Simulated assay, not measured.
Amino acid sequence: MTQATETHDSLLHTPLHALHLEAGAKMVPFAGYDMPVQYALGVKKEHLHTRDAAGLFDVSHMGQLRLHGVNAAKALETLVPVDILDLPEGKQRYAFFTNEQGGILDDLMVANLGSHLFVVVNAACKTQDIAHIQAHLPADVSLEVIEDRALLALQGPKAAEVLARLQPAVSTMSFMDIQQVNIDGVECIVSRSGYTGEDGYEISVPAAEATALARKLTAFDEVEWIGLGARDSLRLECGLCLYGHDLDTTTTPVEASLLWAISKVRRADGERAGGFPGDAIILDQITNKSVDRKRIGLVGETKAPVREGTELFSAQGERIGIVTSGTAGPTAGVPVSMAYVDTEYADIGTAILAEVRGKKLPMTVTKMPFVPQRYYRG
């Protein structure tokens, strides 16, 4: 996770900023916001606590949007290689915007709330995403940028038990369900999803009520505040990409090993195949398996973490790729990394060398996620 270079005075604050300071958070610039990177527990203990119990994350810096109009799904489908038209009410789906070269502009979550689509985009990309959507909307579809809501993520094996104390109905939701729910008297938008690989929820709450809800949640013994540091190591262990690191405008979904996220109706022969930016390039890569590099998982054979930017080499000393994310792997128990390598070196079990401080450290290509995902599927 890299930090932005904004000056303190220019940084934006989430509605929970004062609460983070009260909780003793170490604050850093991130995506234009003053954000908590860790609390008193420290990154490793926050990571492990989330895996064992429940962690609360402030993700209010993310962009929350609504698309209104009977043709909203049809309009959004022209920008993503994902089936939005058949997205059931009360469900959400992972998607990404593509450019004309097949590269990824951003990844996002799209939900069908019946009367409208609810979209969550990455903080660092939200200004460009809003402009991108607005530039491609027909006259009968409108975009609403939500400015008056915070976004909390409650993650971990105890998350469902905790949130059900405030609203029992959430316990019946399954992974990727989303609904408008009253939590302790406050109208929230709750999805059973997250960015840690654990069971949990993301909760969109009116900004004016966010501090009170966060206090109620952190008052439970199972819940601790978790910062950006542990958020990064948690998502990496579970094989989840971070935009701007593992994904960018020069990387196609096929190179990024995200073929699972391209809906079959958008890549099979049929009237809805293609129809998104870069479709000819992406569909050719799928059909002909014509990519020169692939995103892979790597496990280290030493104790040294292999971080972003580390160059990778074959056993013969040929440069074959670069690491895009890396962590010590608190739960995995070994250093884990994501990287892009030449396709011929992407097979599971391939031995690769990582150059760290002048030394070539042995690593092995392995299947992701590095630790099991524990989403609740009913």
Rank of each mutant, 00 (worst) to 15 (best):
231 R>M: 12
231 R>W: 04
231 R>H: 05
231 R>Q: 05
232 D>C: 13
232 D>V: 12
232 D>I: 09
232 D>S: 15
233 S>K: 07
233 S>W: 09
233 S>N: 09
233 S>L: 03
234 L>R: 01
234 L>V: 11
234 L>E: 09
235 R>S: 13
235 R>N: 04
235 R>I: 11
235 R>T: 03
236 L>D: 03
236 L>F: 11
236 L>M: 15
236 L>A: 08
237 E>D: 05
237 E>F: 15
237 E>N: 08
237 E>Y: 09
237 E>P: 06
237 E>L: 06
238 C>V: 12
238 C>K: 02
238 C>G: 04
239 G>V: 04
239 G>F: 03
240 L>H: 02
241 C>F: 08
241 C>M: 15
241 C>W: 04
241 C>Q: 08
241 C>L: 08
242 L>W: 10
243 Y>L: 06
243 Y>W: 14
243 Y>E: 11
244 G>L: 10
244 G>A: 09
244 G>T: 05
244 G>R: 07
245 H>T: 12
245 H>C: 15
245 H>N: 10
246 D>Q: 05
246 D>N: 09
246 D>A: 12
246 D>S: 11
246 D>H: 03
246 D>L: 02
247 L>A: 05
247 L>E: 05
247 L>V: 05
247 L>P: 02
247 L>Y: 02
248 D>I: 09
249 T>E: 14
249 T>V: 10
249 T>C: 14
249 T>H: 15
250 T>Q: 14
250 T>Y: 14
251 T>C: 08
251 T>M: 12
252 T>G: 02
252 T>E: 01
252 T>V: 05
252 T>I: 04
253 P>W: 00
253 P>A: 05
253 P>F: 00
253 P>E: 00
253 P>H: 03
254 V>D: 00
254 V>A: 00
254 V>N: 00
254 V>C: 03
254 V>F: 03
254 V>W: 00
255 E>T: 01
255 E>R: 01
255 E>P: 02
255 E>D: 07
256 A>L: 03
256 A>G: 01
257 S>L: 04
257 S>K: 05
258 L>H: 00
258 L>T: 01
259 L>H: 10
259 L>R: 13
260 W>R: 11
260 W>F: 12
260 W>N: 15
261 A>Y: 00
261 A>H: 01
261 A>I: 00
